[in-house]
Simulated assay, not measured.
Amino acid sequence: MTFEDLQEILAEQFSCSPEDVTEDTDLFDDLGADELDLTELAWNVGEGIGEEVSDEDIAACRTVGDVWQYICDHT
């Protein structure tokens, strides 16, 4: 999975432009993520990296950069 893939996933999930999704984008303040969104994101990231990602792991992420670091650490 590339960072661009993550941008596309988030852009589709949160109805925004991929260019608006940067490492500094806050999942909660900027994208308005809630618990259901985090569950969906965990599933999408898991599909992208080929392993199960727990909701708790994604919930520990605050920014897109945190999610990207998680992906890098697990691939």
Rank of each mutant, 00 (worst) to 15 (best):
T63R: 08
I71S: 09
Y70S: 02
C16A: 10
E51F: 01
P18T: 05
R62Q: 14
Q13W: 01
E40S: 09
D34L: 09
I58G: 10
E40T: 15
V67M: 03
A59D: 08
F3P: 04
E51D: 13
G46K: 04
E19A: 14
G65M: 07
D37P: 13
I58F: 08
D37F: 11
L36W: 03
L27G: 09
A33K: 07
G46D: 07
G65L: 11
I49S: 08
V64K: 07
H74F: 01
W43N: 13
L36P: 02
W68T: 07
A33P: 04
V53D: 00
R62D: 06
E23M: 12
I58R: 00
S17N: 12
W43V: 15
T39R: 04
D55A: 14
L38R: 05
L31C: 00
E51C: 12
L10G: 06
E4Y: 09
L31I: 05
C16P: 00
D37Q: 08
A59Y: 02
E40A: 10
I71H: 03
H74G: 03
G46I: 11
D24S: 13
L27I: 06
V67G: 12
E52A: 12
E56A: 15
L41Y: 01
V21A: 13
D20I: 01
D24L: 06
D20E: 15
D73S: 13
W43T: 15
N44D: 15
C61R: 02
F14K: 04
D29H: 06
C61H: 07
L36K: 05
T75H: 07
L36C: 06
S15Q: 10
A11T: 03
E23A: 10
D73F: 06
N44I: 01
T75P: 00
E56R: 07
D55Y: 11
M1S: 13
D24G: 08
L10H: 03
E52I: 03
C16S: 07
